[in-house]
Amino acid sequence: MQNEEFTSPNQRYSFNFLGGTDNIYSFQTKNEFAYEILFRPTPYLFGINSINSKFIYELIIRVARNNSSKKSPPFDQLVSPTIAEIFTNFYENAPKTIVIYICDSSDNRQLIRQAKFSRWFEYFDKNNFTKLDDSIRDSGGIIYPVSLIVKSNNPHKKAILLDFLEMIEGYNRNK
């Protein structure tokens, strides 16, 4: 499936699956921004001995290239449905996938990223996915919004949600 191109209906961008360890997808916008969507394996998040550890991926959404004169990507109504289609494609190939999305806080815009990701989630087939939001707080008081997404029909959904909540509690304990 590496370097496979997916064509999309008019309301989405075409995208490519580049593969690799991080399961990279890419697409180019009309505004000359190239995005990469990564599904990085993170088996350690629920503990390496968890029965679900081999299904856990961190979702990373990043601008890979900016070929425009703009500093940051402008609003583009085709980005959200493209990311939703990429997400769905990844789950079709790995239906027991568990995705964790941790909002980047390097520029203190993590709450804005959380709101944007929640809006993007509106484009997903929500009857097929369950999303649970929470946050991790570091010792300096910085909050990192975190989302978990799992297929609604995953036979281990309840255990996965409990593992996620225990993970959050573990990170937040004594802070």
Score class of each variant (00 low, 15 high):
residue 51 I to H: 00
residue 69 S to F: 08
residue 51 I to Y: 00
residue 86 I to F: 10
residue 80 S to T: 04
residue 78 L to R: 11
residue 93 N to S: 13
residue 83 I to Q: 02
residue 58 E to G: 05
residue 53 S to M: 00
residue 74 P to Y: 01
residue 68 S to Y: 07
residue 101 Y to R: 05
residue 82 T to R: 04
residue 46 F to L: 08
residue 77 Q to E: 15
residue 89 N to K: 15
residue 102 I to F: 03
residue 88 T to S: 14
residue 86 I to S: 15
residue 49 N to H: 00
residue 83 I to Y: 02
residue 52 N to F: 00
residue 76 D to I: 00
residue 67 N to Y: 12
residue 72 S to V: 08
residue 96 K to G: 09
residue 48 I to Q: 09
residue 82 T to I: 07
residue 71 K to Y: 08
residue 95 P to C: 07
residue 99 V to Y: 04
residue 66 N to L: 03
residue 71 K to A: 13
residue 81 P to L: 09
residue 57 Y to T: 10
residue 70 K to F: 10
residue 47 G to C: 02
residue 45 L to G: 02
residue 68 S to A: 11
residue 59 L to P: 08
residue 95 P to Q: 07
residue 64 A to H: 14
residue 90 F to R: 11
residue 81 P to A: 09
residue 67 N to R: 13
residue 97 T to C: 12
residue 62 R to D: 13
residue 63 V to F: 06
residue 101 Y to D: 08
residue 53 S to R: 04
residue 52 N to A: 05
residue 91 Y to C: 04
residue 83 I to V: 15
residue 60 I to C: 04
residue 97 T to V: 05
residue 75 F to S: 14
residue 100 I to P: 07
residue 50 S to G: 03
residue 54 K to T: 10
residue 68 S to W: 08
residue 87 F to E: 13
residue 58 E to Y: 03
residue 96 K to T: 08
residue 56 I to A: 06
residue 103 C to Y: 04
residue 72 S to N: 12
residue 80 S to I: 01
residue 58 E to V: 06
residue 77 Q to H: 12
residue 90 F to T: 05
residue 54 K to M: 08
residue 94 A to Q: 14
residue 64 A to K: 15
residue 71 K to L: 13
residue 74 P to R: 01
residue 55 F to A: 06
residue 59 L to Y: 10
residue 42 T to Y: 08
residue 67 N to I: 01
residue 53 S to I: 00
residue 94 A to F: 13
residue 42 T to P: 03
residue 99 V to C: 14
residue 89 N to Y: 11
residue 72 S to C: 00
residue 103 C to L: 06
residue 88 T to C: 06
residue 75 F to V: 05
residue 101 Y to I: 05
residue 48 I to L: 07
residue 83 I to P: 10
residue 96 K to L: 12
residue 66 N to A: 02
residue 41 P to N: 11
residue 44 Y to S: 12
residue 70 K to H: 12
residue 41 P to Q: 10
residue 86 I to L: 13
residue 71 K to V: 07
residue 84 A to H: 05
residue 68 S to D: 10
residue 101 Y to N: 12
residue 90 F to I: 05
residue 89 N to Q: 15
residue 74 P to M: 04
residue 79 V to K: 15
residue 50 S to L: 02
residue 87 F to T: 09
residue 102 I to E: 15
residue 65 R to A: 13
residue 100 I to W: 01
residue 70 K to M: 12
residue 72 S to I: 06
residue 87 F to D: 14
residue 51 I to Q: 09
residue 58 E to D: 15
residue 68 S to L: 06
residue 41 P to R: 10
residue 88 T to Q: 14
residue 71 K to F: 07
residue 74 P to A: 04
residue 71 K to T: 09
